[in-house]
Design a binder for these strands. Sequence first.
DNA 1: AGTTATAATGTTTGTGATTATCAAACAAAG
DNA 2: CTTTGTTTGATAATCACAAACATTATAACT
Lengths: 148, 148
Amino acid sequence: MENRIQRIKEALQEAQYKLTPQREVTVKVLLENERDHLSAEDVFLKVKDKYPEIGLATVYRTLELLSELKILDKINFGDGVSRYDLRKEGAKHFHHHLVCMECGAVEEIEEDLLEDVEKIVEKEYNFKVMDHRLTFHGICGDCQSKKD
Amino acid sequence: MENRIQRIKEALQEAQYKLTPQREVTVKVLLENERDHLSAEDVFLKVKDKYPEIGLATVYRTLELLSELKILDKINFGDGVSRYDLRKEGAKHFHHHLVCMECGAVEEIEEDLLEDVEKIVEKEYNFKVMDHRLTFHGICGDCQSKKD
DNA sequence: AGTTATAATGTTTGTGATTATCAAACAAAG
DNA sequence: CTTTGTTTGATAATCACAAACATTATAACT
């Protein structure tokens, strides 16, 4: 964990930004909740526990900054809120999501399933792919077995 | 076009809803702008030309209703607005999009590129896929040639 | 340490999209 | 025609987020 904070610090400094205490706490919260998909509000509340003086705008600014630096990915599952997801270290691409329509659970897929598809898009549609977002909507294993 | 309106009318009635004049005008606007990805506001303005008495709330309600019935897909390209896209008749799945990061153009891909990927997801992750959303972010052909 | 320039923060106020409310218009059924 | 449920349009409320701006912290000098 310390390693990853260190790495993020370097990324910030490379882009002429500082790792302020507020930013560090925000990053920590994101690391501690890596499996979740927190909204800005969620992050704000969790950060406030550790650093009560922080302002909401700072959290928004930090999330925006980290997104620009591709440390975070900003995602949208269709509820009215943006959610934030740490990009795995070294990952070129955004990872995929499985959203259960029954229980709302979100599972992540690390594996890159789209290499072939991207090749098709680049050739057939003459479109230079920089990134992708893929979400499957369906029924997760748990909910399938509950139904039986 | 009349056919498709007829089909939509039947879908509404099946779910105990009526095709009111306001809804019909909204559907017409969506059909006439099938290639675009209109926001609720866009739809409202276009509907107002044909039916000036209509209220904004009615348009929102109609779009919501058509989304529930899977006649429309509600999409989000990361600007702060929901956009609406008619589902192709008979299409099981949402179609894919290519979003250009330079000029913002959105191209659609009808072809279903994900059959193999879905099989993997169903098997390996025990997840029953009902639908998917796939968006590629990159540089479109036009913007690539402009850069040279 | 003191001074200054710059960056970052926190509070507060906007803003813009969407939703909720509610009375009025309409439609269907008895 | 009357009753009952639907749908509508105007308006107000909400909610996520962005902008503004004065204040505070930081870094680089002297």
